[in-house]
């Protein structure tokens, strides 16, 4: 950088500060343009603080489900918690459930293929199941790298038959390739049965 370039950079850094702008605006009785970047920072901080404060509330809500579908999904998460030893499943589920409040549509079916096995569920909220799966995938400890069974998770709308394929990833135990989840051992089948025990079919 030669001296001319340094000079230009130095001049470029000279900017009329808010004090000067406010003083000029005051003289002209106009409102200076607000610096939105500076406004966003405290706003974002307030949101973060609000979320942190309300987190314990999500945990305390662990036993309270909002609807029958929520109740079932919650109980399934509890199965995950108790049988598969996922210590955080309840709070994780509850947290996700609360965060997604209002964003899911109960008019969805869930279609899961697990190797040759096909699961079809009706009446569950799509996000309930996917989030419960994600919680288990995040925990990941019971999964070992044995064999491969292909599982595709597809959410089908009962309204117009449109579908969305969900994917999630965990390095240990579950592998995801192109929206396909590879569950690696028997524990995972048990886990799926724990999620929706009555509708698991061959």
């Amino acid at each position: 950088m030669n001296n001319k370039e340094k000079y230009i950079a130095e001049v470029d850094s000279l900017k009329a500060g808010s004090r000067l702008r406010n003083a000029i605006a005051e003289k002209a009785d106009i409102k200076p343009k607000k610096n939105y970047y500076k406004m966003i920072i405290p706003f974002a901080a307030c949101i973060v603080i609000a979320v942190l404060i309300s987190l314990p509330g999500f945990v305390f809500r662990a036993g309270r489900a909002k609807s029958a579908a929520d109740e079932v999904a919650y109980e399934n998460a509890a199965v995950v918690d108790e049988e598969a030893g996922f210590a955080d499943a309840k709070s994780e589920y509850n947290y996700v459930d609360s965060v997604n409040k209002g964003s899911s549509d109960p008019g969805f079916s869930v279609l899961i293929t697990c190797g040759k096995k096909i699961l079809f569920f009706d009446g569950f909220r799509a996000t309930d199941i996917i989030n419960a799966l994600n919680n288990a995938v995040r925990t990941g400890e019971p999964f070992e790298n044995k064999g491969e069974k292909e599982i595709t998770v597809e959410i089908v709308s009962t309204k117009d038959n449109s579908s969305v394929v969900y994917s999630y990833y965990r390095e240990s135990g579950v592998i995801i390739r192109n929206n396909t989840v590879y569950i690696l051992n028997e524990n995972d089948k048990n886990f799926l049965e724990g999620i929706i025990p009555e509708t698991f079919t061959d």
Binding site: L14, K15, A16
Partner: peptide, 14 residues
């Protein structure tokens, strides 16, 4: 004035 305030305050200051 408004145009100058929005666009040339930095220039005047420099």
């Amino acid at each position: 004035f408004n145009y100058a305030f929005e666009n040339y305050t930095d220039t005047v200051y420099r």
